[in-house]
Write a protein that binds this DNA or RNA. Structure first.
Length: 495
DNA sequence: GCAGCAGGCACATGGCAACA
DNA sequence: TGTTGCCATGTGCCTGCTGC
């Protein structure tokens, strides 16, 4: 593994490539079917060593394949078997970067033979000239067969479906492709592998901008030549996400964006939710011209004491002074209004509106409203209605718990706290955290020793990740079973 | 307030092209 | 002809924006 990482960071001129090719009798790799195998080691553009032998397959070579390769049955009758050839071949390839045209095809046969004779398959990650050609010569040739490509680059060796001829043709193709990639700034093996994911040579130049990005969650920032922000986005995997802009993005604005792109900055965050928060702040602060979402977006809060709605700007002072009396944030005024209506529907026996608070006593009172209803229904033998009421109670209590959990992490103070503490991760329920890969619930979990409550936090987290507003979207059936189970937990705790 | 559309992101899938 | 893997495209789920 370490060896491979070193390869990726080694300059192309210093690598030893092993260009290989196999011919078969047309049978699958599941039985001995290789008829010829050839390889050459190439370093600094020079052939250093070569390996070539015929091999005896299990079955006869059919006429169709004889016509294709020119290898006839009498030529392989005395040839060595795979248990003699494959160990020598594996030793020849050791310490090099395997290369071939559609190389995975060849390696399938070689590795199947390795397994049959009790050897480990070849593990080095190969380089495929077919894939590279598709990227670097797109639009220049009508197909990517080895013969077509050899002709296109005016190679001295022409492929003939004999292993060594094809290997030598592939060597020339490899050198031509490396030269072409070098014009785009590729200097290392890692760069060649990156190019295999691109869709045009022009874009290839700019993918080198993503070189330094890590495979971690965070926020990326596209900048133009004058370092003006073009676009801010978040990603669960920064490197993969940014590279996807060069290979698979279909949005109309993307070509224009990439044309103006000159630099990529990024910031790693421990969790996706923190990335979302940072993304939002950057968009609001920098107003990148290609960001439409979140631009001028106002968040809304509910003032539970006055039963009114507050925009973020007005809620700021309240958040610092009386955070327990604010519920939110909500992504739109409409969502906040819906939530407020839901809250106002909760009235106790005296007709007083029950305001959502962190005080567990409120839950107790809500539960008793439903409990009393259920008892009276049961007394009147309306068991089905009672069951519906019971389920309503569970759902409602879960709604409220999720809302409170949402508030725990989504207000700005909590997010700032998470950012400041992100380097001091608390390990609670280690397995769960690893699976979820999210530290946003650490501070909440840290105050609870209850495993199931901690699980409910993870469910709430999923609700938030899906962008569901807890008070307005919990009719979502996909969450029903989880909510049902967790609602039972809350009801049990309250009773 | 609502409907329709577009944006954003992650993931799934079917067709194509290469090999022998 | 059969197999395989890549990649363009589609899908799902949510969001915000705009016009009525």
């Amino acid at each position: 593994m370490q060896l491979e990482l070193d390869y990726e960071l080694t300059q192309l001129s210093q690598l030893t490539f092993c260009v290989l090719d196999v011919e078969t009798n047309g049978s699958g790799p599941e039985e001995p079917s290789i008829t010829e195998i050839a390889a050459v080691k190439v370093r600094y553009g020079h052939l250093e060593d070569r390996f070539h032998t015929l091999m005896r397959p299990k079955n006869a070579i059919p006429p169709r394949i004889v016509a294709l390769t020119g290898i006839q049955n009498h030529m392989v009758e005395e040839a060595p078997l795979e248990n003699e050839v494959i160990p020598q071949f594996a030793e020849f390839v050791r310490g090099t970067v395997p290369v071939g045209h559609n190389v995975k095809f060849d390696l399938r046969y070689i590795n199947a033979a390795c397994v049959r004779i009790g050897m480990e398959p070849l593990t080095a990650t190969p380089l495929d000239t077919l894939t590279l050609s598709r990227r670097l010569l797109l639009g220049e040739v009508h197909d990517f067969r080895l013969g077509t490509l050899s002709q296109y680059i005016s190679a001295r060796y022409r492929p003939s479906h004999r292993a060594m001829d094809d290997v030598l043709a592939t060597v020339e193709l490899l050198h031509a492709l490396i030269e072409r990639a070098g014009q785009l700034g590729a200097t290392h093996l890692e760069d060649l592998r990156t190019i295999t994911t691109l869709n045009s040579g022009q874009l290839a130049k700019k993918t080198t901008l993503s070189k330094t990005l890590p495979h971690k969650s965070g926020v990326y920032l596209f900048l133009d030549q004058e370092s003006k922000p073009l676009y801010v986005g978040k990603a669960t995997d920064l490197k993969t996400r940014v590279r996807s802009y060069f290979s698979s993005e279909q949005r109309r604005k993307i070509p224009v964006l990439l044309h103006q792109l000159s630099r990529i900055d990024y910031s790693v965050t421990p969790t996706l939710i923190e990335a979302e928060a940072l993304e939002r702040r950057l968009i609001q602060g920098l107003a990148p011209r290609f960001n439409h979402q979140h631009k001028n977006q106002e968040l809304w809060w509910i003032d539970t004491r006055h039963r009114s709605l507050l925009p973020s700007s007005a809620a700021k002072d309240h958040l610092l002074a009386r955070p327990n009396h604010l519920l939110g944030p909500f992504l739109s005024k409409f969502s906040a209004h819906s939530a407020l209506r839901a809250i106002e529907s909760l009235k106790d026996s005296a007709g007083e509106v029950l305001l959502v608070d962190r005080d567990p006593e409120v839950y107790q009172r809500i539960y008793h409203i439903f409990h009393n209803k259920m008892v009276s229904m049961s007394n009147e033998k309306e068991f089905e209605k009672a069951a519906v009421t019971r389920d309503d109670a569970k759902r409602l209590l879960m709604k409220l718990s999720v809302t409170l959990l949402a508030r725990e992490i989504r207000d700005r103070e909590a997010l700032q706290l998470l950012e400041s503490q992100s380097h001091q991760r608390v390990t609670i329920q280690e397995g769960l955290l690893d699976i979820q890969g999210d530290s946003c619930w650490y501070q909440w979990a840290n105050r609870s020793t209850d495993t199931e409550l901690f699980e409910s936090a993870l469910v709430a987290n999923r609700v938030l990740r899906g962008g569901l507003n807890p008070l307005t979207h919990l009719s979502d059936l996909s969450l029903a079973s989880e909510i049902h189970r967790l609602g039972e937990l809350f009801v049990a705790r309250l009773s």
